[in-house]
Amino acid sequence: MTKPVTRRHLVVTLAAPAVLAVLVGCAATGGAVVSAEDDQAALLARSKAYWALIQKNDRVSAWAYEEMSKDPSATLEGYLKRGGITFDAVEVRGVRAIEGDRATVNVWMRYSLPLLRLKKQEAATEDEWRRIDGVWHHVQRRSVMFPTAQ
């Protein structure tokens, strides 16, 4: 003998797929935490790759990591002229903050300024990065003496 279909049975049967869709949607938004972790990992990886190139003095390859490489008025030749610092050691120590498309990364470095005969100077700095078209790019610090210089 078959049971008659009740209103409650009908609502539960029809509502189950809707409830499942809502639960799957909630689980997907929980992925934002994983996405933030992935974003931080991508920034760290890109920052480490950039600083490894800088330490090897491969500024031609490092150009692709620079924010200014996306500026049509900036040139590789102009970027290469900004040298003068040699890096003996660089250590990317972690992401300090990510706020939208801007981020800061903690970097420790030991460097020399051969033209000034300064050797083995050490500094810890907050390195600025900017996301452009979904990819993190290093932001060149402006000169303290010439803030409008590129």
Rank of each mutant, 00 (worst) to 15 (best):
E91V: 09
G100D: 05
L80P: 06
G100R: 01
D101C: 02
M68W: 01
L80G: 07
A89K: 11
A97M: 12
N57E: 14
G94V: 13
A42N: 14
A45L: 13
A49N: 09
A45K: 15
E99W: 06
K81I: 03
R93K: 15
W63K: 03
V60R: 11
G83W: 02
V60D: 10
A41R: 15
A52T: 13
D101F: 07
E37D: 10
D71G: 03
Q40F: 00
A64S: 13
A64L: 08
L80M: 10
A97H: 08
D101W: 04
I54Y: 07
T86M: 02
D58A: 08
V90T: 13
R93S: 10
V95W: 02
L76M: 10
R102D: 13
E67S: 12
K81D: 08
R96D: 14
D38M: 04
G84D: 08
T86S: 09
R59H: 11
F87E: 01
L43Y: 11
E91S: 12
L43T: 12
R102E: 13
D88H: 04
G84Q: 04
T104V: 12
E99K: 12
L44A: 08
K81P: 00
W63G: 04
A89N: 08
P72Q: 05
A64M: 04
V60N: 08
D71R: 04
E77F: 02
V90Q: 03
G94R: 07
R93C: 01
G83M: 05
D38Y: 02
V60P: 00
A42P: 04
S69C: 11
V95Q: 00
D71F: 02
E67P: 05
A103Q: 06
R96M: 05
A74S: 14
D58R: 04
K70N: 12
V92S: 04
K81A: 10
V90M: 04
Y50G: 00
V92I: 09
D39V: 01
I85H: 02
R102T: 12
A41V: 15
D38A: 10
S61D: 11
A62S: 13
K48C: 01
E66N: 08
R93H: 05
S47N: 03
S47C: 03
E91N: 12
S61V: 07
Y65P: 06
A36N: 12
G83H: 06
T86Y: 03
S73H: 15
Q55S: 09
N57V: 06
E37F: 09
A42Q: 14
G78W: 01
A103K: 04
D39G: 10
A45Q: 14
V60I: 11
Q40Y: 00
D38N: 10
K81G: 06
A42I: 08
K70T: 15
A64I: 05
Y79V: 01
I98M: 01
E66C: 06
D38K: 05
D39H: 04
L44I: 09
L53R: 06
A36C: 06
D58E: 11
T75E: 05
A41L: 15
W63I: 03
Q40D: 09
D58F: 09
G84M: 07
L53E: 09
V92R: 02
G100N: 06
D38E: 11
I54P: 00
Y65D: 10
